[in-house]
Simulated assay, not measured.
Amino acid sequence: MKIARLLAAVALLVTAMGAHAQEPAAYPSRAVTIVVPFSAGGATDLSARMIATLLSRQLGQPFVVENRAGAGGMIGMGAVARAQADGYTLGWGGNSPMSVTPHLTRSPPYDPRTAFAPVSLAAISSWTLTSRPDLAAKDFEGLVKLAKASPGKVSIASSGNGSAPHLLAEMLKQSAGIDLLHVPYKGEIDGVNAQLGRQVDLMFTSTSAATPQLKAGKLKGYAVTTPKRESALPDYPTMAELGKPELTFEIFFGLVAPAGTPKAVVDRLAAAMKTAVADANYRDTMAKAGVSATGSSPEEFAALLKRHNERWLDVIKRNNISIE
C-alpha cells in the first residue's frame, strides 16, 4: 500500500512538472523592441521613447526604440508586420503607415487593416490649417472667399503626394468648393519653412509643429481638425464648428503588435500602457508639444484604425490619388 501511494505521488509530481514546463515564460522575459517608422526627433519619436521608459520600469525588461524610416512609414511597420507574433517586436503606429500610405500603392508590404494587433493609443493631436502670416484672409470664411476669387492661385503645401496633409487639402477643396494649387514638399518641415518664407500660402500642419510658430506670430491659423478644441490652441475653432465636420481627423500614435500575438501578451501590454499614458510627466511633456496624451483599450484603438482606414481609402479612391 505504501509503495502504491509513493508511486502515485511521484506520478502526480512528474505530471505537474511536465505541465509547468509547457507553460510559456512570463512576458516579457527579455528585451522588447518598439519600431518607430520615422526618423528620430519630433512628437512621434518623443512619445515612443517616453513610453518605452515607462514600460521598462513597469515590466522589468528593457523596451528599446528602433527608428526605421522610409516609404511613408511602411518600411518600419512592414518589419513589424513580418515579425514573430510573440510580443518582442512592437510598432509605434501612426496615421500615415497605419491608414494612408499602404492604400496609395498597388502592392503594399502589408494591409494595415489586418496586419496588426492594436494594443493602445498613446496620444492624439490634430492638423491645424495654417498660412503665411501676411495672407489677406483673417479667418476661415475669408480664406474661402479669397480662394474663390482667385481659382487655382492660392497654394497649399503638403509633406508629399499622398501624405495626410495632401489628402486633407483635397478634402478641403471639395468641402469648400474651392480650387487650390497643391505644392508637395519632401517633408512637413519643408512645407512649414515654405510658409515662413512666404513661398506658399497654406498647409495642414501638425499642431505640434504649428503651435510654436502660431504663438510666435510667425504663422496664421484658421482651425484644428480634432473633434474638440486643442488644449494647446484653445482659441482656434474646430472644423466641425466651422460647419465642416467631414474635415475632422486626428493625428494618433499608439502601440501595436503583429497580428496573431497572444491575447495574454496584448492584455499585459495594454494594462501597462494604461498606467504609462497616465504618467504626469508624460502628459505634461506631450501637452507642451501640442499633443494630448490619450490611452485606450485594444478594442477602442481597433475601432479608430477601422474608421481612419475607411475614410482615407474613400478619399484616395474618389480623388484617384497614387504614389506610383
Rank of each mutant, 00 (worst) to 15 (best):
P212T: 02
G87H: 00
T248D: 02
T275G: 02
S47M: 05
G73R: 10
L46W: 05
P237T: 08
T114P: 05
A8P: 07
G93F: 04
A11P: 07
S297M: 02
E141G: 11
H20N: 09
V315D: 01
S120W: 14
I178H: 09
S231G: 01
K2F: 07
P108V: 14
R57F: 05
S125I: 00
G152C: 04
L54G: 05
L59M: 15
A169Y: 06
L46P: 03
T114N: 06
K288P: 07
P28C: 12
R106C: 05
G191W: 03
L46M: 14
S292C: 03
K228L: 15
G94A: 12
L305A: 05
P151A: 05
S155E: 10
K145V: 11
A270E: 06
A278P: 09
T238C: 13
T89L: 15
A302T: 08
L168N: 04
E310F: 02
A26V: 15
A115S: 05
R49H: 09
A16D: 04
P258F: 00
H182S: 11
L255A: 10
W127T: 01
A276I: 12
M286Y: 09
R49W: 06
N281R: 11
P262I: 13
W127I: 00
M17L: 14
V224Q: 01
N193C: 09
K218G: 04
A48N: 00
G60P: 14
V65I: 14
M17Q: 07
G142I: 05
G87R: 00
